[in-house]
Simulated assay, not measured.
Amino acid sequence: MTATETAPFEIQPRQTYTPCREGGGRRFVVVKVDGDRAEVWDPFGGPRGLGSSRWVAVRNLHASGTTQHGRQRRTGYRLLSQPTSKWQELCGSCMRWHDEDDMAVIAHGWGHSTCKPCKAANDKRYGAQ
């Protein structure tokens, strides 16, 4: 690989995605990849908002929200975050992976914990509890 080439984008479990277009849907986590589709988990979908799984075409998952020509994507989902270690927790507010020390609340379930920055923002918006 030369200095100008980049590694090919690889879709992997535990990556979180967000819609390329604002208001285009909810964020989700990749559970597994099976050929040309990926099983994803929405922590707040399904009955009573307790989470649900669905399948997404791999062609709709992108490394960024812009095309090769620099234009904003209008469809699909862009990579939001991926864990750097298997010990990180997923914040359900920002859908980013954090080390345990960066978490305000740990619920030990993908998307049900809260990181310190999100807790501070929630406390500011709704009042500290």
Rank of each mutant, 00 (worst) to 15 (best):
R71M: 03
G70E: 05
G35N: 09
W55S: 06
P8L: 01
V29H: 04
T67E: 02
K124T: 13
F28L: 07
G45N: 10
P83K: 00
G92L: 02
T75E: 15
R125N: 04
H62E: 03
D99E: 12
P13R: 07
G51R: 13
Y126N: 12
R78Y: 05
S93P: 00
K116V: 15
D101G: 06
W97N: 01
G49S: 11
A121N: 11
C91W: 06
A57M: 10
A3G: 03
R26I: 02
R96W: 01
G111T: 06
V56C: 07
D34T: 10
S52T: 15
Q12E: 14
Q82I: 01
T84W: 01
R71W: 00
Y126V: 00
V40N: 08
G35A: 06
A3I: 09
W55R: 01
A38V: 15
V105G: 00
R59C: 10
R96H: 08
Q88W: 01
R54S: 15
S52I: 12
P83D: 04
D102S: 15
A121H: 09
I11A: 07
Q15E: 12
E100I: 13
H69M: 08
R27P: 03
D102E: 15
C94Y: 06
K116H: 08
G35I: 05
S113Y: 07
K116F: 03
E22L: 13
M95S: 03
T18Y: 00
Q129R: 13
D42E: 14
Y17E: 06
V30P: 10
T114F: 07
A7Q: 07
G25K: 09
P47Q: 13
A128W: 05
L80F: 01
N122L: 13
C118E: 08
R78C: 11
T67P: 02
G92M: 02
F44Q: 13
G35K: 07
V58R: 15
F44M: 09
G70I: 05
G35C: 03
Y126M: 12
G45M: 12
Q88T: 03
V33A: 08
S113A: 10
R96L: 04
L61N: 12
F28D: 08
T4W: 00
G127R: 09
H62Y: 15
P8M: 02
R14S: 11
Q72G: 00
P19E: 09
A57R: 14
A128V: 14
P43Q: 11
V30Q: 11
R125W: 04
H69N: 10
F9K: 04
I11S: 04
G111P: 04
